[in-house]
């Protein structure tokens, strides 16, 4: 989903919302989705991430892939803030349907450059209705 805004220099700033709906590890979708978002962010795209459905499993804490022989890319979500991705939405209903709570997710933070590098929580928990609005905004 992409919207275009005009910034004060008159150039186009594209706003992207990456909707993540797949579980990690079983397929490559999650890892590739994260990489694509980070590459976009590195190229100054305005990137937001939304996690819904099985996508919420991507942010589960304590993931340890040492016994299945794949890369533990869950560590990479910790770099989102460094890439200036500071809007990360997680849908509460998707968590509840899976027997998970907010406390099950990694305590991700970002350092706010405009606030003396204060560490702030990265994840914003939203309801289904709120996510609907967020998706619409990026449309």
């Amino acid at each position: 989903m992409v919207t275009e805004d005009t910034n004060h220099e008159g150039g186009q700033v594209k706003k992207f919302l990456y909707l993540n709906r797949r579980a990690p590890h079983g397929t490559n979708y999650a890892q590739e989705g994260l990489e694509v978002a980070l590459i976009g962010a590195a190229f100054d795209q305005d990137v937001a991430m939304a996690y819904t459905d099985d996508g919420v499993f991507q942010l589960k804490k304590d993931q340890d892939t040492s016994d299945i022989g794949t890369k533990n890319f869950s560590a990479t979500y910790g770099a989102l803030g460094d890439y200036d991705v500071t809007r990360v939405y997680v849908e509460l209903e998707s968590l509840a349907r899976r027997g998970l709570t907010k406390e099950d997710l990694m305590p991700l933070v970002y350092e706010d450059e405009d606030d003396d590098w204060e560490e702030k929580p990265l994840i914003r928990f939203v309801s289904e209705a709120e996510l609907r609005d967020i998706i619409e905004e990026h449309e």
């Binding site: 990690p24 590890h25 499993f57 589960k60 016994d67 099950d104």
Partner: peptide, 8 residues
């Protein structure tokens, strides 16, 4: 077990 551990 290994698949549980991978998924936290």
């Amino acid at each position: 077990g290994p698949d549980l551990k991978a998924r936290g």
